[in-house]
Write a protein that binds this DNA or RNA. Structure first.
Ligand code: NAD
Ligand code: NAD
Lengths: 215, 215
DNA sequence: AGTTGTGAAATGCTTCACAGCT
DNA sequence: AGCTGTGAAGCATTTCACAACT
């Protein structure tokens, strides 16, 4: 197994995509899949697929292909999806609630286990997904005892660092940051960004009308 | 100006980040900013900031720094945020409605102009942000006449291609795909992916407990 | 003195080409 | 024959180092 911090992030992202495609194909009863079929299902080149597998020593049979169930299991072990992870959402606003109600996490062994907010008007309310919004002050080391928690930051940008610090202080060292604010993290913690407004800006850039009449 | 398809996407994403930081600093009355201050605000290295600017010929004053207002204007022109873009949401579910209600697009000259769904029970309902859900069948070339529309795909994965095709057929050639399904696009169209479940999977990978007891 | 702007080096990632297995 | 697995090449992006400017 390669050193965990020498692994290309793009490879991990694609592995998650293969995983999903394999779950789907397995359900459809597929028994064999070639790298180019997997590639097609994820919109990626077949070489790339094989390189990714090769990186972790995931094997198929030359001349034949891959066994979907087995490969899925191998990828799950690589991505640590063979064990459950809990998602703790901080910020029960529109985005936080959409996440909490999302039904697609189960297939990845991910489960939203708690939703926290600071607004007294929201605390105690039941939301989609069946959870009840809890006071962010009740976020303590006991929230995630011996479990594998991942924080989801869906607070306003100016609260992002504070909310992140709460998560760190409680032993949650993996955070997906949906706010546009950058997060300072202690050594050993890992914060990834999932801001999508910049993605819209990229699409704005590709506007075909190169000229625009200024006032 | 460099060829529009020779531009590094990471540069565009960072440009959007600088843009946001500049808007904020401008509001706080900042008159001068150095590349290292901008870097800090976005969690990026100062060299990277200057390289990005240099790519588009955006200039500051050596020994002094950058004028926030002027720089913001320049970045806006590069990203085409000097003109308004309309966001058309297809799929008025949890995520689509969260997007529709999001108040942060205005600063980028982006505006959600329509929300479409196929569910008769949803059509006609007023949602957060003030818009009314429309029948996806009413999505025609007139939806976006001479305007600059960007599609946001927030339908279930198995409807993604169909919904995308509808957008293409109506002249919307820029799409942000929030589903896990890959999209086949006609030449000239540009589809970007904003799936965040893979991001959670990346964080799962960085689980510190390397051993896990299997049953 | 302090900060920008940029070639050149280093690193990271993807694609190619093909040897090797079944 | 067909498909996998992987070094080597190629391309993209980041970082370095420093000259140039104010
Ligand atoms: N909604 C979107 O589509 C969208 C799009 C892009 C980015 N974002 C980003 O995602 C974040 C959340 O967006 P949203 O639209 O859900 O906002 P929102 O205002 O609907 O929700 C924010 C929630 O955080 C809670 N909160 C505030 N301070 C808190 C604290 N210190 N601790 C715990 N909870 C706190 C608020 O009570 C509120 O319920 C924002 O940073 C926004 O920039 C959202
Ligand atoms: N909610 C999340 O947090 C989340 C997280 C990760 C990925 N996603 C992805 O985002 C997408 C939307 O997720 P969601 O949670 O909002 O789902 P949702 O089920 O709440 O909403 C989907 C909406 O699309 C509508 N729809 C279905 N077919 C349509 C069609 N052909 N044309 C127009 N509208 C149609 C449905 O009526 C529904 O309102 C899914 O693909 C999901 O995988 C969502």
């Amino acid at each position: 197994m390669p050193e965990t911090d020498r692994v290309p992030i793009p490879t991990l992202l694609r592995l998650a995509c293969y995983y999903r495609a394999l779950v789907e194909q397995e359900q459809r009863g597929a028994r064999r899949l070639s790298s180019s079929e997997i590639a097609q299902l994820c919109g990626i080149s077949a070489t790339q697929v094989r390189k990714d597998f090769s990186f972790f020593g995931l094997g198929g049979k030359p001349g034949v292909g891959y066994d979907p169930a087995q490969l899925r299991g191998q990828i799950a072990r690589v991505l640590k999806l063979d064990r459950p992870h809990q998602i703790v959402i901080v910020g029960a606003g529109r985005l936080g609630q959409a996440l909490a109600a999302y039904g697609g996490f189960g297939a990845y062994n991910l489960q939203v286990s708690g939703v926290f907010d600071s607004d007294p008007a929201k605390i105690g309310k039941r939301i989609g997904g069946g959870l009840t919004i809890q006071d962010v002050k009740k976020l303590t080391p006991k929230t995630c005892p011996g479990k594998r928690c991942i924080g989801a930051l869906t607070v306003p940008a100016d609260q992002a660092q504070r909310a992140a610090d709460t998560l760190f202080s409680v032993g949650i060292y993996r955070i997906l940051n949906f706010t546009p604010a950058p997060i300072e993290a202690p050594a050993g913690a890992i914060v990834r960004t999932a801001a999508f407004t910049p993605e819209f800006a990229v699409l704005a850039f590709f506007d075909k009308e190169t000229h625009y009449e200024h006032d």
